[in-house]
Computed example of a mutant assay.
Amino acid sequence: MVAGWFTGDGDGFRLLGTRCSACAAVFFPREDAHCRNPGCSGGALQEVPLSRRGRIWSYTDSRYRPPSPYVTDPELPWEPYTLIAVELEPERIVVLGQAVPGVTVADLAVGMEVEVVPGVLHEDAETIWTTWNWRPTGVTK
């Protein structure tokens, strides 16, 4: 888990971003040092929970084993996964993330509503690394 990027679990799971008090720009991943908006003179940055739902802006699949530092078990066959870019309209940002396991590009369309849910990036005997996934609304996979 990346500290400060999300909070909660189940229906309370939310990505966390920051909002600039001067220009109202929202950032994810969060920004704690300064406003990233080049047209802003800067303001205080405040943590904000991001919308749980958004619409697919774009999507693709990953059919190759990525290089380090991405963690994969070389003993296991590579499993392709689906990446989704989701527009969060109230925040006026696009957030990239993996689809929930089992959802493929064949299941998706630009403009489809999705929701953020907790996911597992990697696990071993001692640790489960939590991340976020996008799931089409109404799907229970």
Rank of each mutant, 00 (worst) to 15 (best):
M1G: 11
A3V: 14
A3P: 12
G4V: 10
G4T: 07
F6P: 09
F6S: 10
T7M: 08
T7I: 14
G8N: 06
D9M: 11
G10D: 07
G10F: 00
D11Y: 00
D11G: 02
G12K: 15
F13L: 11
R14D: 04
L15H: 08
L16W: 04
L16S: 00
L16D: 05
G17L: 08
R19T: 05
C20G: 06
S21P: 06
A22Q: 12
C23Q: 13
C23H: 14
A25C: 12
A25K: 15
A25S: 14
V26G: 10
F28D: 02
P29A: 03
P29H: 04
E31H: 09
E31D: 07
A33C: 12
H34Q: 15
R36S: 10
N37H: 08
N37E: 11
G39P: 01
G43E: 03
Q46M: 10
Q46Y: 03
V48E: 05
V48F: 15
S51N: 00
R52Y: 01
R52G: 09
G54V: 02
G54W: 09
W57P: 08
W57D: 15
S58N: 02
S58R: 01
Y59P: 01
P66V: 03
Y70T: 15
T72S: 11
P74H: 08
P74I: 13
L76C: 11
Y81W: 14
Y81P: 11
T82Y: 03
I84V: 15
A85N: 04
V86L: 13
E87F: 07
L88T: 07
E89F: 01
P90S: 09
P90G: 14
E91F: 09
E91M: 14
E91A: 08
R92D: 02
I93C: 00
I93D: 08
V94D: 10
L96Y: 00
V100S: 04
P101T: 06
G102Y: 08
T104I: 09
V105G: 04
D107G: 03
L108I: 05
A109T: 03
A109C: 10
V110I: 15
G111W: 05
G111E: 02
E113F: 01
E115R: 06
V116S: 12
V117D: 04
V117K: 01
G119C: 01
V120H: 08
E123L: 08
D124T: 10
T127H: 13
I128S: 04
W134H: 10
W134V: 05
R135N: 03
R135Y: 07
R135K: 13
G138C: 09
V139F: 11
